[in-house]
Every structure is written in structure tokens, then in C-alpha cells.
Design a binder for these strands. Structure first.
Lengths: 204, 204
DNA sequence: AAGAATATCAATCAAATGATTAAATTTTTT
DNA sequence: AAAAAATTTAATCATTTGATTGATATTCTT
């Protein structure tokens, strides 16, 4: 079946389909996506989707796994690094996420809404909650502020980072001017979040 | 056509359909919802949907308008009240939203993801950005901190309020214990957000 | 109570959609 | 070069799905 030539730049049919699927699934969500949309986006015959990936559902699972990995894969190594201070963790989380989210602005809304609507074979699996609660980051927060629920702090931090990208469609319209304003806002936020995080964790 | 008896408790067919539509649309999103799902949820014949609401799209628009109003209707009067201080505005925003969101936990994710996926006849219309930018709240923030982009502050505040409900599905599983933990966390957050907001706006 | 308007239902339609098939083409192996 | 394997294509299938129809039942008006 699939997989023939040694992938050089991977302009293989399989990869073309995956790339088209990434675009269409992300733009419209699983349910609103027609396999014909993907075939058209890829410039390929419809039957090739089933030839390479068996079914729409299987193809989606593949893309979804990628997206979940991209969104949450950053998290574990950063929040569990025993060699970074709390401040360094906040810096790195902010910077790493902003780089990735600037290139994938609608990744969070896509992943979260698909987990909710798409009868959670993922929702159960993802459980970022467990990862966060048992993380080194949580220990450091508790150490600094034993009176606070560290999850409150983590949610505030993640919210400060992710929320702008989730709210972007209703806060900024599609005009170039607004999109530039958003980019500048994000850039400035790299400085503000660590500052504000310190302020939050410092105040009583 | 529709509308016959004087609505007392409104157990009318029309209202039954709307209630079922609210449930199913919110749970699965527009594209994944079948009109038959709604009819079944309402315990009514499928043809009645079209009899009362013409089409799935029309019914959805109705529900969507309701949801958008519920999510953003709170905002305008609060952020534009010229008789409340900045601190009072933050208090009221936090409390009002938490009451509403506790009863409608998946409202934000539903509205935001439908605006994104459902080819924005709404996305254009909603423009909370304009409302916020021209608000009395923004003026008060600028007054207090002329060096800050007030939109940064507003996004942080809204993120602190809304983000927990958006991230809930991946941070808390369905077990009763976790759901109770979430409820307590929200309760405690009513106190933390005003405190943290002050800290953020105070720090330099 | 008779007639008219409104509401509900089972059955059905037409279009959309995910998937398959069998033939044609290209690539790889021998 | 011949044979075999893999890939691509047009056509088609079976289901699903939003919507409609015409018959029946219920409610309202007179």
C-alpha cells in the first residue's frame, strides 16, 4: 500500500493529504469538514483519502494527535524541569508558547472545541490536569505560597498566555491594521506576563 | 402558523424545540447536530422543527443569538457604568460572570468555536473588541496606568475569569470529586481575581 | 356543533456524503 | 522487457440528513 519513495522533502501524496487535512480540519472542525473538501484542498482524487488513511475518522485522529502533541507537548518538559527556578519556568513557558501560538493561532480553540464536541476519545486521554498538578512547577508555587492553591496560579498563567489567541476572533477583526495590533500586543505581553505573574504570586 | 396559546409556563412545542436545540447545539456544535437529534431530545416529530423554524440554520441562528447575548450582554452595562470605580467594575465583572458561567459552563467555548467554524456571519457582528476599546473601563485603566495598553489589562482580566471554563474539560475530569474541586476553585477565585488585578495594575 | 385554522404525524424526497469498486496508469521488481 | 506491485482515477453505492408532503388530529372561532 502506501509509503514508496524515500521521503526527501515529502511531497508525497500521503503528506499532501495530511497537509490538506490539517488546513481544513483546523478551519472548519471535524463535523463540518467534508472529505471532498480535503481532496480538493490537496488537489487529489477523493478515493486517495481512503486508500491512504482508511477513513475520515482515522485521518482525523492522526491530525488531532499531532495537534494535541503540538499544543501540550511543550508543557511537560518545561513544568517538570528540576533545574529551573519558578521565574525561569514562567519566562520559558511564555516565550515558547508565544512562538508556537503565533505560528498556530487557532490551535487552542481547535483542540479544545474538538475535544468537547467530538465525543471525547481524546478528552479522557489528554488530562493535562494530572500532569500540571503533579508537576515541579506546582511544587515551586506551593513552596513560595503554601496558602494558595497552585492550580489557581497555573490557570492564571496559562490563561494570560493562551486566552488572547482564543479571544482573538472577537477582539480583533481581519483587517491588516488589527492583525498588526495583535502581533504587537503579543510581543509586549512577553514582558508583561512574567511581571504580572510575580505581582500575583507576591500579593497577599 | 405558530404561536397559539397564551404562554404561561411556556411548555409550548415551540419552546420545547428551542430548549432541545439549546442542549444539542451546545453539546455537539452546529455541524455535528442532526435535526433528528433535536427532535428526539424534544420528544417531538421531526417535521415540527421546520414547521416552527423553517430550517436548521434559522433555528441555530436563534439559539446562537441568545447565547451571544447571554455571554456578552453582561459586558456593556458593566464596563460602561460611569458611576463605578475601577475596583467596583472588576468586582462586578468577576461576580456576575461567575454566577452566569457556573450555570452555563460551556457557553464560552461553544460561542467562540461556532464563531470560528461557522463561517462568521456572527464573527463580524459580535466585535466585542470595539465595545471594550471604547469603554469607560478602558478610560479608567488608562487614567491609572497611562503607560500600559489597557487592552492588555482587559484581556488579562477576562482571561482570569473565562479561561477556567474553557480549560475545564482538559483540567478536570468528569468524576464528582473533580467537579466539586472545580466549583470550590471558582468560588475562591472570586476573591483572588480582584486581588490579582490590583497587583497587576499596581506593579511596574 | 359546524367549519376553519392550527398543529402533529408517518412517509417520502432529493441532495450530500463517506466509502468502495474496477479499470487504467505508473512504478518497482525480476 | 516482462511481470508484479503500487498508485490513481472515474463511476457508483449505500446511508445519512435536511426538508417537504399530504393525511389526520386538535384547537379555535362563529
Amino acid at each position: 500500500m502506501a509509503k514508496t519513495q524515500t521521503n526527501q522533502v515529502d511531497s508525497s501524496t500521503e503528506e499532501k493529504i495530511k497537509q490538506a487535512a490539517r488546513i481544513v480540519f483546523t478551519r472548519k472542525g471535524y463535523a463540518a469538514t467534508r472529505t471532498r473538501d480535503i481532496a480538493e484542498e490537496a488537489g487529489l482524487n477523493l478515493a486517495l483519502l481512503n486508500y491512504y488513511f482508511r477513513s475520515k475518522e482515522k485521518l482525523f485522529e492522526l491530525i488531532m494527535m499531532e495537534k494535541v502533541q503540538k499544543l501540550f507537548g511543550i508543557l511537560a518538559p518545561l513544568v517538570n524541569d528540576p533545574n529551573t527556578s519558578l521565574e525561569e519556568k514562567v519566562d520559558r513557558l511564555t516565550n515558547n508558547y508565544f512562538v508556537m501560538l503565533t505560528q498556530n493561532p487557532d490551535l487552542p480553540l481547535f483542540v479544545l472545541s474538538e475535544i468537547r464536541s467530538h465525543g471525547s476519545p481524546f478528552g479522557e486521554k489528554v488530562q493535562v490536569g494530572k500532569l500540571l498538578r503533579e508537576s515541579h512547577l506546582m511544587k515551586q508555587v506551593t513552596e513560595r505560597r503554601p496558602d494558595l492553591d497552585p492550580l489557581q496560579v497555573a490557570m492564571t498563567l496559562l490563561g494570560m498566555i493562551v486566552f488572547p489567541f482564543i479571544a482573538k476572533p472577537i477582539l480583533f477583526n481581519q483587517e491588516l491594521e488589527q492583525q498588526e495590533a495583535f502581533a504587537m500586543l503579543i510581543e509586549d505581553r512577553k514582558r508583561l506576563i512574567p511581571l504580572w505573574f510575580q505581582a500575583c504570586i507576591g500579593v497577599r
